[in-house]
Amino acid sequence: MRKLLILVGVLLAAHVVLLFVHPAGAASPAIDPHAVNVGIVFDVGGRGDKSFNDAAYVGGERAEKELGVHVRFIEPGDGSDREAALRIFAAEGMKLVIGVGFIFTDDLVQLAKEYPNTDFAGVDFSVATDSAGNPIPPPPNLAALKFREEEGSFLVGALAAMVGHSKKVGFVGGMNSPLIQKFQAGYTAGVHYVCPDCQVIAQYAGVTPDAFRNPGKGKELALSQYQDGVNVIFHASGSTGLGVFEAARQTNKLAIGVDADQYSEAPGHVLTSMVKGVDAAVFDAIKRVKDGTFKGGIYSYGLAQNGVRYVYDEHNKALIPDSVQARLQQLRADIIAGKIKVPTTP
């Protein structure tokens, strides 16, 4: 008995001593009220996804370096953590609180109403519509950051038709949903714009979110399209696309990446990638808050804002002739100028 009490005493003493250890460089939890403080809450899954959350992180880091703002991040666990994390940031007096992913939509709307003096932003925020189909604007202190994926898809579609040397071009989607159909619609329009008699073979890996992480299915779909005479496939299918790249390598044909520059997945076989600039949108929102020009509403990022773009650099220059690149730049300018209207549904 006495031994046990001594043990408890020793453990307690050691714990109390360690409580006062203060390593050099330890951050103070108190936030600096004079700085611009920004809180970013990741989607469940958090950092390390090589896509969405990581892109938001990059945007936040860049804002810290270039704008001198303070950015803090929270990775939520279960479903109630999203609101809790937003609330922690709002209650701490952050100037801007960002939720990454459409799943934050409900939580952001509620918090924006409760904290009218805090600015909020939601990446891929899903804007509700009223019974007549008109969008319901978000609260005045909430910015919905949306992307016009169809515009970037249009350009890679035109590129696929121009360098494919085939009347057939391919598309592999992940989960068949309005979001991915936007990619398909833009891509198909781009193909037909430069090659009216070309045929787009569009296939989806499934109807559930699992269709975004099924490389086996991606490879199967891609192989059958390549055998069918397709020379270029654009995938918008998460990690299912890894199978598309595998098929491109195996058949020595070309594939187009999505969301981030996917050149390294299959060097020599990635024609380009349709990049979605989550990092730029996050940076932009932070910059507006710093400059005092932040306004709520729907922000739509397209080619004009560099919110979507296609990759053209030293890695894939050899695959894209100069004349083709010039034509793409012309198409890009035409879309920005409104001369070409890109559809959002196939």
Binding site: H15, L18, F20, V21, H22, P23, G25, A26, P29
Partner: peptide, 16 residues
């Protein structure tokens, strides 16, 4: 105690 050590190794103050 294990938590203390982990936090210190990470470079933060356990008390904080």
């Amino acid at each position: 105690l294990v938590g203390d050590v982990l936090i210190i190794v990470y470079g933060q103050s356990p008390g904080e």
